[in-house]
Amino acid sequence: MLEARQLTKVYNGNTALRSLDLKVEPGEVFCLLGANGAGKTTTINLFLNFIEPTSGSALVNDIDVTSAPLETKKFLAYIPEQVMLYRNLTGVENLDYFVALNGAKRAKTELLKILADAGLPREVAERRVRDYSKGMRQKVGIAIAAAKDARALLLDEPTSGLDPKASNEFSELLARLSDNGVAILMATHDLFRAKESGTRVGIMREGRLLQTLRTSEISHSDLEQWYLGHMRTEKAAS
């Protein structure tokens, strides 16, 4: 569903992503781990066609995102680290807007249910977003992604700043989505969440995908050791 072929991005002589080869199949949750500047967000931006690759290609449902950006976005939903919404609209109005942008039309009761499923109660959903906490906004972002019924989901540090309960609810949502065959690519620092939600994890450093593992084959502590091992190598190298 999501595929990177020798995907490379160079900014002003600095290589942010080097020849990335990656495949995320339907129902799979692939977690990209790595320090800041490792190339995780660049990878997501390339799949969203927010930036153009220097070489290689990013494909969504076997379609190159640079040649058919609008077509590929039909299959994609995206949740950034900080879900930003329109402050003067309510949560449900924001959801309605993004649903309409996706070309769909849903009744208000349906929208409220989607928000409630994402953990946002009705009385909060009908308040203007300017008073929302980060967690509340994140829930609206999840609802936006869920309402799209997308076949692939791109997540950029989605649980950053969420309380443990909200993070847990988020993991449950990811599980539901992957069970429905959605391919999920998640950039995160959260090793625990990666192990809980991911089917595979990949570690990135200086724009390279160094190694990938199946989460079913590794314990929480092994994952941590494995990650820290790579980080130490990076520190020593620098």
Binding site: L48, L70, K73, A77, Y78, P80, M84, F98, L101, G141
Partner: peptide, 14 residues
């Protein structure tokens, strides 16, 4: 600045 443009453009808006 606020980041809503990312959300909108990721929805496939021209």
């Amino acid at each position: 600045e606020s980041g809503t443009l990312r959300q909108v453009l990721s929805a496939g808006v021209q």
